[in-house]
């Protein structure tokens, strides 16, 4: 975490588009009269989605006015939660989990790939496609290591599959979210199958298994 500030360059204004506006009006009905400000998180999130993944200052004001809240209260929320991007991000926001399970399963590798393929963290890649950052536990440790790209989890990655994933995204191809070693959920990996698919991954898998043996 570091100090979060609003972006230096901001758009002139912000309005929910008609579709989001309708959705936001419906959100308000979820809460009792006078408690509309409970909707601040979903509304900010929707505003961020509308602005290509970041939250400009006029959007903060728009949400505040929409919910009849003081600007500072919405500003507090937007700066508190790191899920709100106060600066523009690339088309794909790559969030690499670095918490212990993912780290044990090789997230350092994935981070290295990010440095090589995208550049320094929290900045937009030169082609405008990617922004990456390191995050804490994404809550899918069973399929570690995990990378979240926009709304999707990509699981069981290694440097090669991750690199391939990034180039597919760069090329505009469609990618499948979920496990990259063919797991349906978090059932045991068939070592043979994955070894054929990806030798290095299998080696790592075995290493881990060996590591487990002394127990």
């Amino acid at each position: 975490m570091s100090v979060r500030r609003l972006a230096a360059e901001q758009p002139d204004g912000f309005q929910f588009n008609p579709e989001n506006r309708k959705w936001a009006d419906a959100q308000l009905k979820k809460y009792p009269a006078g408690r509309e400000q409970s909707a601040v998180l979903p509304l900010l999130w929707r505003a961020q989605e509308q602005c290509d993944g970041w939250l400009p200052e006029p959007a903060i004001r728009h949400v505040a006015e929409f919910l009849n809240m003081p600007y500072i209260r919405v500003y507090e929320v937007a700066t508190f939660y790191t899920m709100f991007n106060l600066e523009p991000v690339g088309k794909y926001l790559v969030q690499v989990c670095k918490t212990t399970p993912c780290w044990l399963r090789g997230s350092d590798e994935l981070e290295r790939v990010c440095f090589e393929e995208i550049g320094s963290p929290e900045s937009i890649s030169s082609d405008g496609n990617f922004t990456w950052r390191q995050v804490e536990c994404l809550g899918a440790c069973v399929n570690a290591p995990i990378v979240q790209i926009n709304a999707d989890f990509h699981e069981d990655l290694n440097s090669q599959s991750f690199r391939a994933l990034l180039s597919k995204l760069r090329a505009g191809e469609t990618v499948t979210a979920g496990s990259h070693v063919g797991r349906h959920a978090s059932e045991p990996v068939e070592i043979e199958k994955s070894a054929n698919a990806n030798e290095k991954s299998a080696n790592e898998e075995q290493e881990t298994l060996q590591f487990k043996k002394p127990e």
Binding site: M1, V3, R4, L6, Y71, I72, Y75, E76, F80
Partner: peptide, 19 residues
Amino acid sequence: TPELGATGRGEDMEITTYL
């Protein structure tokens, strides 16, 4: 006049007015 607020969190919390 709810003008002052605490932005950020943890060690990075700061007291300020809106902009």
